[in-house]
Design a protein around this nucleic acid. Structure first.
Lengths: 203, 203
DNA sequence: GTTTTCATGTAACCCGTTACATGATTCA
DNA sequence: TGAATCATGTAACGGGTTACATGAAAAC
């Protein structure tokens, strides 16, 4: 009953911050904008929306059906448009400011990155660097275990391991570039191409 | 109660086919040999082992504790070594032969690949090609959605999408190489380097 | 002799999916 | 007017984790 998701909740708040939407549309945007990473179903989305409303972070608005008068009749079910409340916005901003360890875990990182446009630069930096060191740890462990057991593994397992390591190395290089360009953005000046200075007057 | 996992079950059977082991060791091998992909906990492993025993696919053996005589005393708990039974082996071989659509889903593919050493060549081919066309579909969808919504996305979301697509493209290239080398292995002759002709006398 | 690592297990929970049920709107 | 798509929702399940509890063996 008490759906307190995490990543889905975060994504919903983030998308609704940009503009109000109804569930169906929300789901499509979740599964495209958010990338390849996750594909949520209605079975998780609608209950999530409900609890977010209960907590006062979202407000339901009767969607514009066709003609106003018709929609109001006898329990007529129409599109429900959700919008972020003031408390919801505040809460989302708190979430955006978080830089805890789980922030750079596989599942979370993608969503966090997707909302970097609304994230302050120093938080972006911490998340990117956290992710990078996370991956570097992983690489170290993989190399170690490969050195230990490397000889007695069959060709396919070895190939799988090799490809896995290359993937991780590639993501590290990607992060390096991102971190570098964030740094340049800070050192040089403002207004280069860095995606809007973020309207963080909240804090 | 009725843990009928799928990927964990498959991996356990596969590892135990190579040699008997106890749970603790099994878990380590799951989290290294099987690659970066998944990290199982005891909370899922032990219940899984239990149900596999119940179905007659695994047999428990009292592990060699220290001195034989001591181990037999009053309900003494010692290492439990699991080995694959004949039925278990047969069942695993059936699983290995499967080429259904979920075979090439993200989660399954890694484990399937890890046991390619024990998989017949034509099944390997079907799995690799299935995976590839799965990824190509995904690429097509990504490109389409990028073309539609591409302009009105912020820089970070776009970058995320771009990086995601590159990852998928990279895996496709990897699959191409693998498929090619499988094909060469078949066309040329036997005993090139193709990792053992597989002892499939079962069928 | 105490801390670490090895080793086995369980109960509660988490975050999601599947399959289903319902109805409105658009399009051919 | 019937099919496809849009739109909302729920109950049952699924496959795993976390946190906990226990105890033996090895290392210091």
């Amino acid at each position: 009953m008490g759906r307190r998701s995490g990543i889905l909740e975060f994504a919903v708040l983030g998308l609704l911050r940009e503009s109000p939407m109804h569930g169906y549309e929300l789901r499509k945007r979740l599964n495209t904008s958010l990338g390849v990473f996750r594909a949520f179903s209605y079975g998780s989305l609608y209950p999530c929306l409900k609890t977010l409303v209960q907590r006062g972070w979202l407000a339901e608005e009767p969607g514009e059906a066709s003609e106003e008068s018709l929609a109001a009749l006898a329990g007529r079910r129409a599109k429900i448009v959700y919008r972020l409340t003031a408390e919801g916005k505040e809460h989302f901003e708190e979430l955006l400011a978080q830089t805890g360890p789980d922030t750079w875990e596989d599942e979370h990182f993608g969503v966090r990155f997707a909302f970097f446009g609304q994230t302050s630069r120093d938080v972006r930096m911490r998340v990117l660097e956290g992710r990078r060191s996370r991956l570097e740890e992983r690489l170290a462990r993989m190399r170690a275990s490969l050195a230990r057991t490397g000889e007695r593994l069959d060709d396919y397992t070895l190939e799988l391991q090799r490809h896995g390591m290359e993937s991780v190395e590639r993501e590290v290089r990607w992060l390096n570039e991102l971190i570098e360009s964030e740094r340049v953005g800070r050192d040089q000046h403002r207004g280069d191409t860095p995606p809007d200075p973020s309207d963080d007057t909240t804090k």
